Amino acid sequence: MVEIVGAFSSFSVDDVPKAREFYVGSLGLEAQEEMGGLRLTLPGGAQVFIYPKPDHVPASHTVLNLVVPNVDDAVRSLHEQGIRTDHYASSEQMPLDENGILRDPDAGGEGFGIAWFKDPAGNVLSVVTPS
């Protein structure tokens, strides 16, 4: 069996400087330039590698979920920076509130909340407050 001593995730972008500005400047994450890309260090120590890809196609799924203490405060902060959080269309199965937040319909608006948004390369991210 293979001995695995660690792991990290990665995804592509079409413009590393724009990605750096977004992930460091807008989201406040730590980043180091490495091999032409960015190594993000997330709260808690996990790392994600963002690499340049000339024929980049944005992921159609969520590539990074950012856990926040309060989803409403996080969404307000994103909106103040001009970042939209209404990426996914509301439906009966996924009713979003006026700020683009999906909440647990069985919890009466308390606890769980998630809102999706995109990075400059079009990749889907979220801010989430688990229940």
Rank of each mutant, 00 (worst) to 15 (best):
D72P: 10
N70H: 04
V75Y: 00
I83W: 04
R39S: 12
V71C: 11
H79Y: 03
T62S: 07
E34Y: 09
L40A: 06
F117D: 11
G6S: 12
R84V: 14
A115E: 14
L29G: 05
Q81F: 06
R20Q: 14
Q32S: 13
P54H: 03
I114E: 09
S77F: 07
V71K: 00
P95W: 03
G122I: 11
H61Q: 14
L102V: 11
K18Q: 12
K53P: 14
P130Q: 09
V13P: 13
G122T: 07
V57W: 03
V63A: 10
P17I: 06
Y51R: 03
S90G: 12
Y51F: 14
G100N: 02
D119V: 02
V57E: 13
E92P: 08
G100Y: 00
L29P: 06
E80C: 05
D73G: 09
E110Q: 11
E21R: 03
T129E: 09
D15S: 06
R84Y: 13
G36V: 04
F8N: 13
S131V: 03
D119G: 01
A7R: 04
E33Q: 08
G109K: 00
P95R: 01
V75N: 07
T62C: 09
N99I: 09
V68F: 03
L125F: 07
F117A: 02
E3V: 15
T41L: 09
K118N: 13
N65R: 04
D14H: 02
E92K: 00
P52D: 10
P69L: 02
S9C: 08
P17K: 05
G122M: 04
S12N: 14
V68C: 05
A59F: 12
G28Y: 00
E92V: 11
G28M: 05
D106N: 09
V63W: 05
H61Y: 12
Q47I: 13
G36H: 00
N65Y: 15
L29E: 15
P105E: 06
P17Y: 02
